[in-house]
Simulated assay, not measured.
Amino acid sequence: MTLVKFSNGAKSNALNPFTDVFESMFNDSFISDRLTTKVPAVNIAETDNDFHIELAAPGLKKEDFKINLDKYVLSVSVERKAENNQDEKRYNKREYSYSSFVRSFTLPETADQERIDAEYVDGILRITVAKKEEAKSLTREIAIK
């Protein structure tokens, strides 16, 4: 038996009274999760000395990530493949999801490509890109003549 949501009191299409049934079926999170590509959310911040990129990617290991730099394009990729279990289990249904993604960021010319660090802690990949010395903002008071 399947439970189907109906929108009580909402306008339904007179030509298709089953709109709610099909919307419920195709908007189900179980189905839509497998039909859409998941890309981790990103926060990008800038300080006087660095650029900070944070990717929310829980459930991974630091070995799953590949970070590459090609000219001024920084790419973060993950590819997780299904593990081969050598046990004698015969599955009736298996829903483990293994996925891959690539996120690319164009670094500004002020970024120092030689000083890029990354760490993965508590499901967050943090990448710090240092700024070139000449690009660091100088703060000073300007005297009026």
Results as ranks from 00 to 15, higher is better:
Asp112Phe: 00
Pro58Arg: 04
Ser99Arg: 11
His52Thr: 15
Asp64Asn: 12
Glu109Tyr: 14
Asp28Trp: 06
Gly9Asp: 02
Arg34Cys: 01
Glu141Met: 12
Leu55Phe: 15
Arg80Cys: 07
Asn92Ser: 05
Thr139Trp: 06
Val121Gln: 08
Arg34Pro: 00
Glu119Ile: 09
Pro40Gln: 07
Glu133Val: 09
Arg103Ser: 13
Arg90Trp: 02
Glu23Tyr: 12
Pro108Ala: 04
Glu134Ala: 14
Ala45Asp: 12
Ile124Ser: 05
Ala130Cys: 02
Ile67Met: 07
Val39Phe: 11
Asn85Gln: 09
Glu88Cys: 06
Asn13Ile: 14
Val42Glu: 06
Val21Glu: 14
Ser12Asp: 11
Glu46Phe: 04
Thr37Tyr: 06
Asn43Arg: 11
Asn85Thr: 10
Thr139Ala: 07
Tyr72Asp: 15
Glu134Phe: 13
Ser99His: 08
Arg140Pro: 06
Lys71Val: 09
Val102His: 00
Leu107Asp: 02
Arg103Cys: 10
Asp122Arg: 12
Asp50Met: 05
Gln86Lys: 12
Glu23Gly: 09
Glu141His: 14
Ser75Asp: 07
Lys131Arg: 01
Ala56Thr: 14
Asp33Arg: 03
Glu133Ser: 11
Lys132Gln: 10
Ile142Gly: 02
Asp64Gln: 05
Lys131Cys: 02
Ser77Asn: 10
Asp112Lys: 00
Tyr98Pro: 00
Leu74Phe: 00
Leu138Glu: 13
Ser99Ala: 12
Asp50Gln: 08
Val78Asn: 02
Thr2Gly: 06
